[in-house]
Simulated scan of single mutants.
Amino acid sequence: MPTASATEQPSSAQAQAAAVDQLLGQAANSRQQVENAVTAVEQCADSPSVSSAQSVLIRAALDRQSLVAELGSLNVSQLQGGAPAMLTLSRAWSESAAADSAYARWAGAMADGRCTAGSSPHTADWDEGLAESGKASADKNAFVVAWDPIAVRYNLPTRSADAI
């Protein structure tokens, strides 16, 4: 029996669902780091901690952009409802990346001495981060509604919007 090469897209629905699930697992790792980084900027304990938080936010934005690219390369043709679900997920991750980037710009301004211990003023970048994060949350919720029946069908873990 021939085996598929590493460059071929999975053709079975089970393999396609597993590929999406793998990306969802990768995405779960960054959420808590982003929340911690935003909190660190809010607290503005010192410039090095705010600069470190900015680096975390920049990395998170890049990671999410990478997930969007990987998601776009997946074949989900065998998954009922897969294509619209992946469009929603792609939009959610793009919005999350935009939020991370906006929060990173805010952190950069705070690291340059615009905050004092325990107080970081909210700027237009913070407002943009909050708005993009809200859009991302709505799209993540919509994705979960579409994804969880697919996950159940293929014996994969269901997800919460907070975990993606």
Score class of each variant (00 low, 15 high):
Arg114Thr: 13
Asn75Phe: 06
Ser5Phe: 12
Ala146Gln: 11
Ala83Glu: 12
Thr39Val: 12
Ser133Arg: 05
Asn29His: 15
Ala151Lys: 11
Val56Ser: 00
Gly118Ser: 05
Gln16Gly: 01
Thr116Ser: 10
Ala13Thr: 01
Asp127Lys: 15
Ser5Arg: 09
Ser73Phe: 13
Ala37Glu: 00
Lys135Tyr: 14
Ala60Lys: 00
Leu89Cys: 05
Ala27Arg: 04
Ser119Tyr: 13
Ala15Val: 00
Asp127Val: 07
Ala109Val: 14
Gln54Phe: 02
Gln9Arg: 08
Thr116Tyr: 07
Arg114Leu: 12
Met1Glu: 07
Ser120Phe: 05
Gln26Met: 09
Tyr154Arg: 08
Ala85Thr: 03
Thr158His: 12
Asp139Cys: 12
Ala124Phe: 07
Glu128Gln: 13
Leu71Cys: 02
Gly81Lys: 07
Val34Asp: 06
Leu67Cys: 02
Leu62Pro: 08
Leu23Gln: 02
Leu71Arg: 01
Ala151Asn: 06
Asp148Ala: 08
Ser52Ala: 09
Asp148Leu: 09
Trp93Phe: 05
Ala131His: 06
Ala109Trp: 15
Trp126Ala: 08
Arg31Lys: 11
Trp126Asp: 12
Asn141Pro: 13
Thr3Ile: 11
Val144Arg: 07
Ser55Met: 06
Cys115Leu: 01
Ala124Asp: 11
Ser52Phe: 09
Glu35Gln: 15
Ser77Val: 12
Asp127His: 12
Gln78Val: 11
Thr123His: 06
Leu57Pro: 00
Lys140Gly: 06
Gly25Asn: 05
Gln78Glu: 07
Ala15Ile: 01
Gln33Met: 12
Glu128Phe: 11
His122Leu: 15
Met86Gly: 05
Met1Gly: 13
Ala17Asn: 02
Ser137Gly: 14
Met1Ile: 09
Ala124Glu: 15
Ser94His: 05
Ala40His: 05
Gly113Gln: 04
Ser55Lys: 06
Pro149Lys: 03
Ala69Tyr: 12
Ala92Leu: 03
Ala146Phe: 11
Ala28Arg: 07
Asp21Phe: 06
Arg59His: 14
Gln16Phe: 00
Val20Arg: 01
Glu70Pro: 08
Pro121Leu: 05
Ser73Pro: 06
Val152Met: 15
Gly129Val: 00
Ala61Gln: 00
Val68Leu: 02
Ala85His: 04
Leu24Gly: 03
Asp148Ser: 11
Pro10Tyr: 00
Ala85Tyr: 03
Ser52Lys: 01
Gly113Phe: 00
Leu23Ile: 05
Val145Glu: 09
Ser5Glu: 08
Gln22Lys: 14
Ala104Lys: 00
Thr39Cys: 08
Gly72Phe: 02
Leu74Ile: 07
Leu89Arg: 01
Gly81Asn: 02
Thr158Ser: 10
Leu67Asp: 01
Ser96Pro: 04
Gly113Cys: 01
Asn75Arg: 10
Thr116Phe: 10
Glu70Ala: 13
Asn155Cys: 15
Gly134Ile: 14
Ile58Gln: 09
Pro10Ser: 00
Arg159Gly: 06
Ala138Val: 10
Ala131Phe: 09
Gly129Thr: 03
Gly134Arg: 02
Phe143Trp: 10
Val144Pro: 02
Val152Trp: 13
Pro48Ile: 03
Thr116Asn: 09
Thr39Arg: 12
Met110Thr: 04
Gln9Trp: 04
Val34Cys: 06
Gly25Phe: 01
Leu79Asp: 01
Glu132Thr: 14
Arg91Lys: 15
Ser30Tyr: 12
Arg64Lys: 11
Val56Cys: 01
Ala60Leu: 02
Gln14Arg: 12
